[in-house]
């Protein structure tokens, strides 16, 4: 068996969760209707409650 190229390091992001007092990493994603949603843009109109969830089940 030939040895393939080395497995690229697993991209797992930061090892600690963003914490209170830190600057939130900005991002832009599409919502379920296809509309773009950017954190920094939304923050211009007030605080944001951002909920991370496991997904549809």
């Amino acid at each position: 068996m030939t040895r393939g190229p080395a497995t690229p390091p697993e991209r797992s992001g930061r090892s600690t969760v963003v914490d209170v007092g830190e600057i939130a990493p900005d991002f832009e994603l599409a919502d379920s209707t296809g509309a773009r949603w950017r954190l920094s843009t939304r923050l211009a109109t007030g605080p944001v409650v951002l909920v991370f969830y496991r997904g549809y089940w």
């Binding site: 600057i23 939130a24 954190l39 923050l43 605080p47 944001v48 409650v49 951002l50 909920v51 997904g55």
Partner: peptide, 18 residues
């Protein structure tokens, strides 16, 4: 998948609650 978590982010982009 994402671990479940809730944040409150202030207009200056600072995390206020985790």
């Amino acid at each position: 998948i994402a671990r479940p978590a809730t944040f409150v982010i202030d207009p200056d982009r600072r995390i206020r609650l985790r």
